[in-house]
Design a binder for these strands. Structure first.
Lengths: 216, 216
DNA sequence: AAAATTACTAAACAGTGTTCATAAAAACGA
DNA sequence: TCGTTTTTATGAACACTGTTTAGTAATTTT
């Protein structure tokens, strides 16, 4: 009896069409200007049909948000080919900002907008797995840095929050246009220097650290 | 001829009533749920009347945003009684987070929301004076730290962006609920440690810095 | 008192997310 | 194949939103 399976396939097909249309509109016009009726028109269904596949608009954007985290994790993972964990961590910083600059709307949805968070709250279940994947990659790199002596030993959570908050602060300041007092062309260089700066905190005393030895 | 002056007074009176009503609704219900009709009802005028005093909704919130920066600057200024610029800078960090925690909605409007920025973009004129006041206070403190040897000499813009981005990253992560993986009660302590961490970057080599001498 | 100016608003416009009764289509049992 | 049940899809409506405009009411000036 393949009828049930086919129906499920069709249902998934429409679901993907909705997500595809919504993503396209979202990346082109932003969240507010992506309307249910607009999505419906794109997939040639009525607006009401969307509600057979998603509870509300927030749930659609929670799904897009998750997709964004997949791309984000893929991007961050590019750093994994680097052997030295300290250099790898530094590279992750660059990749983080690259993602934010190249996929502004995605970054905004993933780290700033309220919509996906409200979708989670509605369900009650905190499935933050998407973000956790990247979060754990960062933590693992930090741990490796400390274990191999590239970084002075300190509380893991403190180190993680410090690094990720600096990254997010720069990215969201930029995306939400709060650094208008700076020439937008030099911002990337300021950000790079800021990252170098913060990496410096985590080293041991400069003259004795494994990092310093590695520099020669 | 006092009639013109009286009219101007009345116009300003209504303007303030609008801002007061809008602020109250905004702090209670948030941006989206603060409607023009809601504001109008509160001040017992029609919604259309508001448009005789403000170009649009964004312009109202640009004004509230400016008010928020006044409060913010007042808060940050509490640090000025501290003589030692390094300790003062550290205190500014605490005050920054205090503001963000105590006035979430204000912080969100000032540093995250799009509305006030769009109001600015519409006018064309970048009157960022409100934020600049606080920005310059931070810069002045950093400069003083460097001049008096509490902080190693480095590019001012890099130091400013590093510090403010870390602060904003923590505050906005918290306010936009992106640190749900942590116990919300321990977050303030993590943030404090993160601030201590970053301050460490800016010191000279620990054993020779003026800061270290000041610690004894 | 009449004219001109200013202040104000009801109503309309064009949208929004969401719901629901109803209609169309598909699946099923006989 | 026919009728019945179940699934799927939608038009229309609801209750909103920000904003504009035409027309009214109040005030000031002449």
């Amino acid at each position: 009896m393949g009828v049930l399976e086919r129906k499920e396939r069709e249902k998934l097909e429409i679901r993907n069409q909705i997500l595809e249309a919504a993503t396209e509109l979202f990346l082109k016009e932003g969240f507010d200007k992506t309307s249910m009726r607009g999505i419906a028109e794109k997939i040639e269904y009525s607006a009401a049909t969307i509600y057979l596949h998603f509870k509300d608009k927030n749930e659609i954007f929670k799904a897009i948000h998750d997709k964004g985290f997949e791309i984000f994790f893929g991007k961050l993972s590019e750093s994994q080919k680097i052997e030295n964990p300290y250099m790898r961590l530094r590279r992750m910083g660059d990749l983080y900002l690259e993602f934010a600059f190249e996929h502004r709307e995605f970054y905004d949805l993933m780290f700033v907008m309220r919509a996906p968070v409200e979708a989670r709250n509605a369900d009650g279940n905190i499935d933050w797995i998407c973000g956790m994947q990247s979060f754990k990659l960062l933590q693992a790199t930090i741990i490796e840095c400390m274990e191999k002596g590239y970084m002075r030993k300190m509380d893991l959570d403190v180190a993680t929050v410090t690094i990720s908050s600096l990254m997010h602060g720069m990215a969201s300041f930029y995306i939400r246009e709060r650094l208008v007092m700076y020439d937008q062309n030099v911002l990337p260089y300021l950000f790079k220097d800021a990252m170098d700066n913060i990496m410096y905190v985590f080293k041991e005393s400069p003259m004795t650290s494994a990092f310093a030895e590695n520099q020669n």
